[in-house]
Amino acid sequence: MNIFRLAGDMTHLASVLVLLLKIHTIKSCAGVSLKTQELYAIVFTTRYLDIFTDFISLYNTFMKLIFLGSSYSIVWYIRRHKIVRRSYDKNQDTFRHVFLILPCIVLALLINEKLTFKEVLWAFSLYLEAVAILPQLVLLQRTKNIDNLTGQYVFLLGVYRALYIVNWIYRYFTETHFVHWITWISGLVQTLLYADFFYYYFQSWKTNQKLQLPA
């Protein structure tokens, strides 16, 4: 494993911890999209089914369990926790899952590394992860005041994606036969979705003003 991949995983972990900590300590999920969190729970469930069939490393299995556990806990908090769920504004978080999930199923059936159950699910999880942030970005755009933690959560997720791209470039040059078009293209699309957010995030940071996305 190279340093970019490790740094990417750590930023991913940090993003999830920031979000869980925010929800757990201030007992509020204001500004957090339940739709995005549910999509991530689906992404991790479909991608990490291989913990039952393949063993890669202890690190790998451990991280998979963390991402599965944290995504389900966040969904549980927003849906079931008696205080947290009151802060969830479902009238703002209106993105429909089905418009993202259905096209990803079709795409995964058409474009995959092998037409097997596991490979189709793998491809599906990559396509869905690429677009899963959309409900969150739409919600941020609608929210007048984005709190620091929600902003940091999205920022860390974007950094994690960018580091994964550097990791793929590194692996392409250092490993033989490391060519994964499906992973690369969906990963690139995913990272590009953060470009706009990054622009405004740095603007607000430079001018020391509260982050606000234009409608």
């Binding site: 991949r5 890669i56 998979k64 590394e113 994964y164 990791n167 490391f178």
Partner: peptide
Amino acid sequence: DKDKHSHDEL
């Protein structure tokens, strides 16, 4: 090397 498996990333 197990790390060269195509699905070794998270």
